[in-house]
Design a protein around this nucleic acid. Sequence first.
DNA 1: ACTTTAAACAGGACCTCGGTCCGGTTTTAA
DNA 2: TTAAAACCGGACCGAGGTCCTGTTTAAAGT
Lengths: 228, 228
Amino acid sequence: MTGFTPPPPSPDHGTPDGTPDGTRGEHPGLALIPVGEPPQLRADAARNRTRLLEAASRLAARCGAANLTMEAVAAAAGVGKGTVFRRFGDRTGLLLALLDHREQQLQAAFISGPPPLGPGAPAAQRLHAFGPAVIRHERDHHDLILATRTDPLRAYSVPARHLRLTHVAMLLREAGVDGDAELLAHTLLGYLDTTLIHHLSVERGMSPDRLDATWHDLVTRLGAGPAE
Amino acid sequence: MTGFTPPPPSPDHGTPDGTPDGTRGEHPGLALIPVGEPPQLRADAARNRTRLLEAASRLAARCGAANLTMEAVAAAAGVGKGTVFRRFGDRTGLLLALLDHREQQLQAAFISGPPPLGPGAPAAQRLHAFGPAVIRHERDHHDLILATRTDPLRAYSVPARHLRLTHVAMLLREAGVDGDAELLAHTLLGYLDTTLIHHLSVERGMSPDRLDATWHDLVTRLGAGPAE
DNA sequence: ACTTTAAACAGGACCTCGGTCCGGTTTTAA
DNA sequence: TTAAAACCGGACCGAGGTCCTGTTTAAAGT
């Protein structure tokens, strides 16, 4: 029994809460947050969590997500280095948590936002709207997203990915597409992969229009109706 | 002028030559290798290159590609640490060079091998055969491939990727598929991405049959004929 | 065959950063 | 009041990567 580490209450790989951008949050009373998964952090832990996310967000904006160092984040947040790792597990965990917060705007848009992206429009139209929305979102945060891809396998386990997958698969079925909806959804999401989009638009200089057009083409060919 | 580094003759990111597995290669005479790109390494440099690749291959087989350390490779090859970096640039470069060598078997199969993968069969059939072949190949080397994905963007610049892309795009056009052949090819290759395949088969437990079936479905829906 | 010259080499010091661990201290919640 | 949980802060390790000194070696010129 030399180095035994009972898993510290499982660091979060990015779960909703935190509100890491607002400058409020000193009074921990009033549990407004409809938090679901995080097993209730202790008050000081939660406070440090948001401090860390704020600091990370600042530093990422200043120096780029790729240049974030854990020590710098810890120092900027005024906490010890160990605290950062206790909370987020590792660097990727921190970046994912950062990303997750921003991701929720997109999620809200296609889950409960106005049509054609949100509910209310026919499934095919929602699908057609989905691609360009994701592409735009990913372009806005490409540096952060790319920085998380140091651990390629984890990208598939992150809740955001799963949510997108379920959503697209559902729309495919709803649009009357026959076949393996889950794998077809994976294929569509593959086309929207940040790395690919970044490569095509930045390194190959493809226009957004061309990327969008092929999305519509794909959705149509997979059996959902045309865009119109 | 403190730390200026005139780019050392550009380390290779994985280019054909080397024959890093055979145990021959002591007599550097007889330039049999129809080498194209590598700007002719000096004899001792070439020798060290193959030594390094051999050592790396051994170590990767023993401990897994993820646990390869540059110093271990250097030591096992009996060269200095600096030599490894001079030759391959960085760890990813070394891994890509390793991978590239194994990739050539697959390339030979679909470029000049027997039908239906190689030339001689109709384009649609070649396309249908392409997916399962790549999936099998990637499963065989998934640890090595995943280890290179630490640098996600580089995966798109590597010659092997470009070759696959051109090949698939050509087959699509040849099969009479209309639309943006290049982007459709990217989509198909996205479905074959090692990370995705690994996630689906290992972590989600999907059967190879199901993965293959969806490949055929995809190719068919994109407009090439059915498999038959 | 001999000299020359540029390139490659060994090998290790050195830096950075991710990640672990620990001893002592503070804070929270019961 | 008390016990558990979180924290600080830094020592510590491993590995990637840089750089430098002096040495070897291959290749081109005579």
